[in-house]
Amino acid sequence: MKQGIYTIGHNRPLTADVWEMTLLGDTSPITAPGQFINIKLEGLFLRRPISVCHWDGEKLTIIYKVVGKGTEQMCAMGPREKLDVLAGLGNGFDVQKCGDHTLVIGGGVGVPPMYGLAKALLAAGKKVTAVLGFNTASEIFYENEFKALGVDTVITTVDGSYGVKGFVTHGLPEHYDYYCACGPLPMLKAVYNAAPTSGLLSFEERMGCGFGACMGCSCETKYGSKRICVDGPVLEKEEIVW
């Protein structure tokens, strides 16, 4: 983890309430896809943890949904504005653990880290299939970005307005040997129950610090208690206690 001042490159809406922001600065603290950053915002006491979508050289990209005061403030910001960021938080996905054909499963704002993961898996020579779930057609983002990587991409929508009707579990292909998932808790649980292979699941929790000091985001696992912010957010399927 490292603290730094980052400059906003661009900040643009992808859908009605989902935004993409690039931050220019030191990306060396980021060591794995699925890690997150913690952003200090004016007038708000706690930092805002947001997962890293992908990073490259001196630029990192985050995608966030506008849900409250913090993200409302973020979407009003523009290029060249500065943000105080703690970068390289959390364990992220271990690409080495993934199979030769790994499914990356994302639901809603759980989609962004799966993009960086897909890139890393491809770079490691693995076959990747993406299953991305949204509520409805107008909420879909990054379909083309995944396809541009050359990844087979299945889109599901709860209302059936685009792609496969239903949840991500309705879009799972027949053959794969590992999966990685990020999304709301009910989605993770459904994937855990539906997918027969081993896998990695990324969890969300309300955090105090984001770097392991406050014990605000602890969860119980089969191997004892873990802090979502440093021992997670990615947990192995085998250790999860629901």
């Binding site: 708000l44 006491f45 706690l46 929790e205 309300r206 955090m207 105090g208 406050c214 014990m215 605000g216 985001c217 602890s218 969860c219």
Partner: peptide, 8 residues
């Protein structure tokens, strides 16, 4: 959890 809430 949740164990944390923000305030002014």
């Amino acid at each position: 959890t949740p164990r944390i809430a923000e305030c002014n």
